[in-house]
Simulated assay, not measured.
Amino acid sequence: MTTKHRLITDSFKVVKKARRGGKREKRSTPPPPQKEAETDTVRQEELQKLRQFDLDWRFGPCTGISRLQRWERAQLHGLNPPEEIRELLLKTHIDPEYKLSLWSEYPL
Rank of each mutant, 00 (worst) to 15 (best):
K4S: 14
K35Q: 04
E72G: 08
S11I: 07
R27T: 09
L102K: 15
P31A: 09
Q34W: 06
K13R: 15
G22P: 11
E25V: 13
E87T: 14
S104R: 15
T9A: 13
R19E: 02
L68M: 04
E72Q: 06
D56H: 00
L76D: 10
Y106S: 12
G64D: 12
K4C: 06
E25F: 08
Q48P: 01
E36P: 07
F59C: 05
L100A: 06
Y98L: 05
G60H: 01
D54V: 00
P81A: 02
L79I: 07
E105P: 06
K91P: 08
T3F: 11
D10R: 05
K26I: 13
Q69D: 05
W103M: 10
R27W: 08
I85C: 02
G64R: 00
S28F: 10
Q69Y: 02
R20N: 09
K23H: 14
K49P: 00
R27P: 03
K16E: 11
W103C: 15
A18N: 11
D95F: 10
E36H: 03
T2M: 11
A37S: 09
W71F: 03
R43M: 01
H93C: 09
I8G: 15
T41H: 04
F59R: 06
G64W: 00
P61S: 13
R20S: 08
E38G: 06
V14A: 13
L102T: 10
S28G: 14
E83Q: 11
W103D: 12
V42H: 05
P31W: 05
V42G: 03
G78H: 04
I8L: 11
P61C: 06
Q44Y: 03
S66A: 04
G21M: 11
K35W: 02
R19H: 05
H77E: 13
P82C: 12
P61F: 12
E105F: 07
T39V: 08
P81Y: 01
E87K: 03
E83R: 00
T29C: 09
G78R: 04
S104L: 07
L89R: 05
K16L: 08
T41E: 01
K35T: 08
N80F: 03
F53G: 05
G64I: 03
D10K: 01
R73V: 13
